[in-house]
């Protein structure tokens, strides 16, 4: 459905995205996750034909966006970060403008009514967009992206700036859409992609650092964690002892120091914290551990920011759920 090959975009000397590759199949809901300024919006802008890439290809249904812009744009519904709304129009006028703009052939009245039903803006149909609240404007933006029933819908931070209740609504709406559309959405909130997407593409500093199924995201986050340990003891014996510890999947001696100690790299299964068993094992043998630390992986840097916001987000949701229960 969507294929991106070696996509690169430069602003002056700075790479906004650099050699990005991925493929998205029919009916997938894919989340772009990354901190602000990671290149999510740039990737989406290129995919929708708003920007041109410096090099590389973006294809939808086998058609290159640069070579067949009109045909490709017909297949896409796009909600940019700031919904492109004409405030002086009513919802009805706005949607029918987009309908004409996209040269749709579906039955206009039925189609627009259906979209409004899906996005729950039926009651706002004749109101001026300028008079709507932010949450409703966001919905109108989503409705606009759905006009013409495009195969691919792209949402740039669809829940940005909404209150927790609205966030939950929009998320379930997007999940619903995923049943018959290919959906790409971007966010910097981990819990959001986890709750909506089938697949997560993590972008940082213009490059893809992970591309995983949602159920494997935890693994992707922690899997890269390696422990670096320095132990004062005979290297082969220490290594053997480390390997015996429950949960260790890989261990190797990396450096032998002149003072008789050695450095080891130890990898373990995802959720096992092997630091304590490691300590006891070494202590039993009388080999002092002189240093022990997690080696920071690429992906971790990304998630220092992302995970923080997840916590915030979760607590917000808990608050709103509590309110709902009352």
């Amino acid at each position: 459905m969507i294929k991106i090959e070696h996509l690169t975009k430069k602003y002056g000397d700075r790479y906004a995205i650099h050699d990005v590759n991925f493929e998205i199949g029919d009916g997938e809901i894919v989340g772009f996750l990354g901190p602000n300024g990671a290149g999510k919006t740039t990737t989406m802008s290129i995919l929708t034909g708003y920007l041109s890439s410096t090099s590389g290809k973006a294809m939808i249904d086998g058609l290159d966006i640069l070579e067949h812009p009109t045909a490709v744009k017909k297949k896409i519904g796009y909600l940019p970060e700031f919904p492109p709304l004409y405030l002086e129009m009513t919802v009805k006028e706005y949607l029918s403008f987009i309908y004409d703009l996209k040269k749709c052939t579906l039955n206009k009245k039925e189609h627009l009514a259906e979209i409004c039903k899906v996005t729950k803006i039926e009651n706002e149909f004749d109101r001026l967009i300028g008079n709507l609240s932010k949450g409703y404007r966001q919905r109108v933006g989503i409705a606009g992206a759905l006009v013409g029933n495009p195969q691919v819908v792209i949402f740039d931070e669809p829940t940005n700036g909404l209150d927790p209740k609205q966030i939950i609504d929009i998320r379930s709406l997007i999940k619903e859409l995923g049943k018959d559309h290919t959906v790409i959405l971007s966010t910097h909130i981990l819990s959001e992609v986890k709750s909506i997407c089938d697949r997560i593409i993590i972008i940082n500093e213009g490059q893809i650092v992970a591309d995983v199924k949602t159920e494997n995201i935890e693994q992707a986050l922690r899997g890269n964690k390696k422990l670096s340990v320095t132990v004062a003891g005979p290297a082969p014996a220490v290594l053997a002892a480390i390997k015996k510890i429950n949960g260790v999947t890989y261990a190797a001696c990396s450096v032998n120091y002149s003072d008789g100690s050695s450095a080891f790299i130890v990898e373990s299964v995802n959720d096992a914290d092997i630091r304590k068993p490691l300590f006891y094992a070494m202590a039993q043998n009388g080999w002092p551990i002189t240093s022990m630390e997690y080696m920071s992986a690429n992906i971790e840097d990304v998630f220092i920011s992302v995970v923080d916001e997840t916590e915030e987000e979760l607590s917000k949701e808990r608050i709103s759920e509590g309110r709902d229960n009352k």
């Binding site: 744009k73 017909k74 896409i76 940019p80 492109p84 040269k103």
Partner: peptide, 14 residues
Amino acid sequence: KMRTEQLILTSPVS
């Protein structure tokens, strides 16, 4: 300014 150009520039219009 209103960013509505994103709408028309990503629509199937030359």
